Computed example of a mutant assay.
Amino acid sequence: MSDVEKLLKQAAMQIGAGGSAGFVEVCIMHPLDLVKTRLQIQSNKSAMKPSDPHYYSGIIDCMKKMYRYEGFTSFWKGILPPILAETPKRAVKFATFEQYKKLFMFGSDTPTPLTFSLAGLGAGITEAVLVNPFEVVKVTLQSNKSLATEIPSTWSVTRQIVREHGLGSRGLNKGLTATIARNGVFNMVYFGFYHSVKGYVPEYQDPLSEFLRKVAIGFTSGVLGSCANIPFDVAKSRIQGPQPVPGVVKYSSTSGAIIMVYREEGFRALYKGLLPKVLRLGPGGAIMLVVYDYVYHFLENKFQPKSI
């Protein structure tokens, strides 16, 4: 097999494993992503009262009110954009991560923690550019508090955004800088920690113990990445979500949104939605990395050249 064929085969396995990992993760964890977005776009200075069906005091309260006033299927509002995006998004993330690793070796024979972190940062930035239009549509759908059966379709929301605001920074690419910062920081911590620690924690021969080892490291990676990038996530939700006063753009830039939230609502407001985010990306991070590892090795063994 030529070098080109080996490279293409490896890329195909990375794309297949990455796409599978993303699809499984988003289907399982989407309800928590929706709750996180609802909490993040709700201002502390909101005129809503606790008795208001659209005022949420926490995760459980949000889930109860969504179930009561919007129906069970409301927990999967806005899931089509991430499903459409997840396969290419995760495929790009894992495939580019492997390529960025080669770029950041800095003369070392083996990857270092710095290599993993910088490769993760590069993969996150690349992923963000690809996924941001889907994020804009997803947040628009997630912030709609009508019954799940009454909300407009993904396609009609997309057409409306393009028709009214175009493809630029007011339209489908609204909040791009915040998405780049969010995904870049998350993946820098996520990949940097996971691959660095995985190399130090000895592997187990027992399949169950080895599975739990990977889950534990993946879970910790997801939690640390979530804690590191949450202020950028809050800024992204405020920029891409509905503005407090219709027709008036209050949140437009990443740094401006972060400063405004801090000044008006305090430091804790920059960590809104952290618990559902951790509950999603902790297990979600573990699911992604474990599914990726197992699917990649399955494909590698399946397409291994047979010896004669």
Rank of each mutant, 00 (worst) to 15 (best):
F72C: 12
V189F: 08
I287R: 06
V4Y: 10
K214C: 07
P244K: 09
K36Q: 14
L279M: 14
Q240C: 15
K306F: 09
P111Q: 07
H54E: 15
Y262T: 13
S156P: 06
D52T: 09
Y292D: 03
K77W: 01
L32V: 09
G266L: 01
R268N: 15
S57Q: 08
Q240N: 11
V185E: 01
L130S: 02
N187Q: 10
K272F: 02
A95M: 13
Y190E: 02
R238C: 01
K65N: 07
A128C: 07
K64V: 05
R263V: 06
E5M: 13
L279K: 06
A123I: 06
G107R: 12
T112S: 11
M63F: 08
V248R: 02
S156E: 13
R159C: 05
P111R: 00
P113A: 11
G284V: 07
N173S: 05
L103H: 08
D33N: 15
Y296D: 03
D52Q: 04
K145G: 08
Y194A: 05
V223M: 06
A47P: 08
V223P: 01
P231L: 11
I161Y: 00
F104H: 08
R280Y: 09
E210H: 03
A11E: 13
T220F: 12
G58C: 04
R170N: 09
G120E: 08
G107V: 07
L289C: 08
P231E: 02
D61G: 09
Q42E: 05
I180D: 00
P152V: 01
W76H: 14
T140N: 03
L84G: 10
C27H: 12
L80A: 13
T140S: 10
L130P: 03
G184F: 00
Q40F: 08
R280I: 04
S221A: 15
V249H: 12
Y294T: 10
F75C: 05
Q160H: 12
M188A: 11
F211R: 03
S2C: 12
K101W: 02
L212P: 01
I60M: 14
S43L: 12
V234H: 02
I151T: 05
F72Q: 13
Y56W: 01
D3G: 04
K272Y: 05
L103G: 08
K145Q: 14
S46W: 04
G168D: 06
Y262I: 06
Y204M: 10
S196I: 10
T126Y: 04
Q14I: 07
K236R: 14
V223R: 01
V249A: 10
K9E: 07
V35A: 07
V245D: 15
R90S: 14
H30Q: 13
A286S: 15
Y67E: 14
S57W: 14
P113Y: 08
L147G: 07
S209Y: 14
T177G: 07
P82R: 08
N187S: 11
I83Q: 08
F303M: 15
R263E: 15
V92A: 14
G256E: 04
E203H: 14
N229C: 14
L299A: 03
Y294D: 01
P305H: 13
M13N: 07
L212I: 11
Y294L: 11
A269W: 02
L275R: 00
E203Y: 10
T220A: 15
A148L: 03
M105I: 13
D33G: 13
Y292S: 00
